[in-house]
Design a protein around this nucleic acid. Structure first.
Lengths: 232, 232
DNA sequence: GATATATATTTGGTATACCAACTAAAGGTC
DNA sequence: GACCTTTAGTTGGTATACCAAATATATATC
C-alpha cells in the first residue's frame, strides 16, 4: 500500500444539511435569530452560500426538534413557545434529568464527578457576577455533564433536544438573582448525592430542581408580557 | 364573498415528505421493511411514485426518529438496534411513562379512564388467544391512551417516537406467554391507581412495568441470536 | 373615490439534472 | 495464473428548474 489510511485532515464529509442545522440552531440559541423571526428559504440559503435543498433539510431537522415551525406557503419561523408549552417541556425534561441522576449514580466515573463538582464550584464563584452569561453557560454544562455521564446515547440525544428548546427561557430565568441562589443550593445537593452514589437523592433533587424552575419562568413570562404591552 | 371558506374536501396538502415518512414508518413497524433492509433512494422513490427530494425528507425524519440510519455513499438502512441500545431506549421510555402516569392522575377525565379500563378488560379476554397480534395492538393502545390523557403535546410526541423504535422488540416480547401474564398484573394495578388518582402508585407501576420488560427482551434477543447462529 | 377583479410577484413544494465518492468488474501486465 | 490498474456503473449529496398557492398591487369599473 502507498498512502492508504492517511485520512487527509480535510474535513470533507458531514451532510451540508446537518451543518446548516447546527449553524441555525446556534443562531437561535444565541438570540441572533429571535423567536418569531422569519427564515425565508431562498434568502437564507443565499446568505449561507448553499442551495435550498440542504437548507431545507436543515430546517426540517430543526422543525423535528421543535425549534422551527413550518407551515404551507409561509416562511419557516423560529418557534416562540407560550408559557404553557414551556411548562410542558420542563416537565418532560425534569423526568429525563431524574432518570439521568439515577443512572449517573451507577455509571459516572469518579473523574466525571470531579469535573461536575468543579463546574459547581466555578458557578459559586460567579454567582454574583454581573456578567451572567458565564454563569449560565456553566449551568447548562453542569446539567449536560451529568446526563453525559450516564453513557445512554438516547437519553443524551433527547435531553439535548429539550435543552435547546428550553435554552432561551432558561437563560432569561437565570438572570434573576433569586433563581441563581436557589439553583446553587440544588446543585450542591446534587453533587453531594453523586459523591455518595445516592440515587434517591440525586434523582429527586434533579427532578425538583427543574420543576421549581417553572415558577421563575412564570415570572419571566409575566414580565415579558408586561414589557410587550408597554412597547407596543 | 362568493364561495370562500368552502374548503373543498380534496385533501391537497400535507407535505409529501411527511406522508412518505408515515408510509415507511408503518412498513417498518409491520415488518414489511425488516431491520437491516436497504432503502435505496431512487428505487424507493419510483416505487412510491414520487421524486427523491420528498422521499429524502421523509427518510431524514425517520433518521431523526432513530428508525433509519443514513451514512455517506451507502443506502439508508432500517435500524437494527442491539440489546444494549434497546435497554437504553427502554430506560428513557420508562421515565416518560412514569411522568405520564403521574400527570394522568391530574389530567385524565373519567371518560378517558373508562376507555383505558375497557382496553385492559379486552386484553384480559385475549390473554390466551393464539392470535397475539390483537393482544399486542391493544397493549400498545393502552399505553398510548394513558400518555394521551396527560394532554402534554411534547410528552406525547417524544413518547410516540420511542414507541416506534421499541415497537418491534416489544412485539416479539409480547409473544411470550409469561410476559403477557405479568403485563396483565401490572396493567391491573395501573388502572386501579388511575381510578383512585394515586400518583405514586400509577407512576411507579408504569416505570417498573417497562423496566421489568427488559428481562423478557433479553431472552428474546438471546433466542434470536441462537436462531441466527443455526440458520446462517 | 371605493370596491372588485385581474395580474404580477413572492413563497414554499416538488421534480429533475448534475456531481463526487465508492464499488466492482474487466483488462492488461508481470 | 495472480495481482494491479483502470474504467464503467451505482450510490447518495447538492444545485437548479419548475409549479402551484397565496399575497400584494394596480387597474378598471361602478
Amino acid at each position: 500500500m502507498k498512502n492508504a489510511t492517511i485520512d487527509l485532515p480535510s474535513l470533507p464529509r458531514q451532510r451540508l444539511g446537518d451543518q446548516i442545522a447546527d449553524v441555525l440552531r446556534q443562531q437561535i440559541l444565541l438570540g441572533q435569530l429571535p423567536p418569531g423571526k422569519n427564515i425565508p428559504e431562498r434568502e437564507t440559503a443565499a446568505a449561507l452560500g448553499v442551495s435550498r435543498t440542504p437548507l431545507r433539510e436543515g430546517l426540517l431537522t430543526l422543525e423535528a426538534e421543535g425549534l422551527v415551525e413550518m407551515s404551507p406557503s409561509k416562511s419557516p419561523v423560529v418557534a416562540n413557545p407560550t408559557f404553557v408549552e414551556v411548562s410542558h417541556l420542563l416537565l418532560v425534561q425534569s423526568a429525563l434529568e431524574e432518570l439521568a441522576g439515577e443512572c449517573a449514580c451507577d455509571e459516572a466515573t469518579e473523574d466525571e464527578i470531579d469535573k461536575i463538582e468543579d463546574m459547581h464550584k466555578m458557578m459559586l464563584a460567579n454567582v454574583q457576577e454581573p456578567d451572567q452569561i458565564k454563569f449560565f453557560q456553566i449551568d447548562m454544562a453542569f446539567h449536560e455533564a451529568i446526563v453525559a455521564s450516564t453513557k445512554n446515547p438516547s437519553l443524551i440525544k433527547t435531553h439535548k433536544q429539550y435543552h435547546s428548546r428550553l435554552w432561551r427561557v432558561r437563560f432569561l430565568s437565570a438572570r434573576r438573582r433569586a433563581a441563581r441562589d436557589k439553583a446553587m443550593i440544588d446543585h450542591g445537593r446534587i453533587v453531594e448525592g453523586l459523591r455518595h452514589r445516592d440515587k434517591e437523592q440525586v434523582s429527586s433533587e434533579m427532578r425538583e430542581h427543574l420543576r421549581r424552575a417553572i415558577d421563575n419562568i412564570r415570572i419571566v413570562f409575566a414580565e415579558e408580557e408586561a414589557s410587550a404591552a408597554v412597547n407596543g
